[in-house]
């Protein structure tokens, strides 16, 4: 018993480099060795699919790519899976971004998917580009969309594009789907909810703050983090360009699964070590920031 306790006490002193190496291993290996995992779609994800399915045919959907390279890991699958579903359903969409890199990153995703589904730029999708001064631009879009956007990312006047026929303000679009890795989501709730069908996708850390808006009906669908993307892929039977039923969301679920298990394991052994320390009577060194 004593030796077990002493072993447990030693577990409190694991070097942070060892923990970093374990983390790297847990996250990297499943990316190379895919695990056969299935996701169960949650109500928030199902609601998004229903909202899209119930849109009138031909109605423009606006996708705001308010994310940059830092949150690409989560936001790219969240953008890809919904764009792919819209293309499969022959629903036209427009990309716009209030984050500097977002319009380009969203365009890269759309180009790949357009090649897969033989969709044409200007007819099936369009990119309005990056727009600075987000709050004022969004407000202006609510009253005069073509006048605010003026040109697409290639410099073509948007009023000339067939996709924009009948779209005078943002209130004329079928749905606004925000993908964000920043705090911009609240701005859409403030300025758009009530007038526009709004759906959101965000990084996992921002998820808990979004649920009140889902419950109140201010947003009509929510995808949270990589898990949200994986659920939507599962629900809409996403297939990559080779026909494999695996999107980036599901692919990365293996890493996330092992990552979560590692965190839980470390919390347990950290606490066991503290318990063992008390049992053997060793005075634990004060550790700043300990919670609980």
């Amino acid at each position: 018993m004593d030796s077990l306790l002493r072993f447990l006490v030693r577990l409190r002193q694991i070097d942070r480099r060892v923990i970093a190496a374990l983390t790297l291993l847990c996250l990297a290996v499943p990316l190379k060795v895919p695990l056969p995992l299935k996701m169960v779609p949650l109500p928030a994800t199902k609601k998004l699919k229903t909202t899209i399915d119930e849109l009138p045919p031909g109605k423009l959907v606006v996708i705001t790519c308010d994310w940059e390279a830092g949150t690409k890991g989560e936001c790219e699958p969240l953008t890809t899976t919904v764009m792919d579903y819209l293309m499969r359903q022959n629903r036209p969409f427009a990309i716009v971004s209030f984050a500097q890199q977002g319009a380009k990153l969203g365009q890269q995703v759309a180009f790949k998917l357009a090649a897969k589904h033989q969709k044409e730029y200007g007819r099936d999708w369009i990119n309005w580009g990056y727009k600075p001064n987000y709050d004022k631009t969004l407000l202006a879009m609510m009253t005069d969309l073509p006048g605010t956007i003026k040109e697409d990312i290639n410099g073509t006047p948007v009023a000339q594009l067939t996709l924009m026929q009948g779209v005078r303000t943002l209130k004329d679009v079928g749905m606004l789907y925000n993908v964000a890795g920043s705090g911009l989501l609240d701005m859409y709730i403030q300025f758009c909810s009530g007038d526009i069908t709004l759906a959101q996708a965000c990084t996992a850390v921002m998820g808990p703050e979004r649920y009140p808006y889902l419950q109140s009906g201010q947003i009509k669908g929510l995808l949270v983090g990589l898990g949200g993307a994986a659920q939507f892929e599962q629900l809409t039977e996403f297939k990559d360009e080779f026909g494999n039923p695996r999107g980036k969301g599901l692919q990365r679920m293996g890493s996330q699964s092992l990552g979560h298990l590692l965190v839980m394991f470390l919390i347990v052994i950290g606490n066991l070590a503290v318990w063992a320390e008390k049992r053997v009577g060793a005075a634990p060194p004060p550790v700043a920031g300990e919670e609980g």
Partner: peptide, 15 residues
Amino acid sequence: GFFIVTAAYRAFRIR
């Protein structure tokens, strides 16, 4: 990712 794991190990105590 690394900081979350080390913080969970070091700071999450059930008292």
